[in-house]
Amino acid sequence: MSWQAVDRTRVPEEQLGPGLSEAVKEKIRAFFSRYPTKQAAVLPALHIAQDALGYVSLRAMKELAELLEIPPSKVMDVVTFYTHFWTHPKGRKTLLLCRSISCELLGAGKLKDAIRQRLGIGEHETTPDGEYSFMTEECLAACDHAPCLMVNEKMHKCVRPEDLERILADADNDRLDIPRSDLFDAP
């Protein structure tokens, strides 16, 4: 009903979602020394929180706000501005498909249809087994490998719809083949 308002003043406890562990908070605190203000650490903090929880829950935002000494609304503001952060749970692996011009010219649209059909999910949705989520994003700066598809941290290059099955079958499809820095955990 058009005159009814969404109630933003209250939120049921169960919608707050999971919180951050002390270890995660410690990891975040390690970033404080890099910046003259604590607020500046919000992006690394959100990366760490999302890597730990799979998404940025309301409770995590509140706890981050406390940690960074800013109002929770400021954390929410940042979370919603950047497309990388999820505010609802996502699967263990995220398929991130480029939808910008070079990829689309080389068939990202068909690949998208293939993914949706194969996994049965649309954008920002998760398969029932909690394994895969799917989203598209603007140019991933790998247009020479168009169309490109990221699985968590791993970039798959020149992916044709017929490659999809092979990629999904590989359990290590999100594993990088170079040494990772441990500043951020793998998602």
């Binding site: 910046y35 203000t37 607020q39 500046a40 650490a41 919000v42 992006l43 690394p44 959100l46 990366h47 960074l68 800013i70 400021k74 503001d77 940042v78 501005f81 950047y82 497309t83 990388h84 952060f85 994003e137 603007e138 951020f184």
Partner: peptide, 21 residues
């Protein structure tokens, strides 16, 4: 590390983003 926003490539957008906004 950024988090997916083209406009953060603009120099002052980048600065704001670095400040945690």
């Amino acid at each position: 590390r950024g988090a997916g926003a083209y406009v953060c490539g603009e120099e002052t957008g980048l600065i704001e983003s670095l400040e945690g906004k």
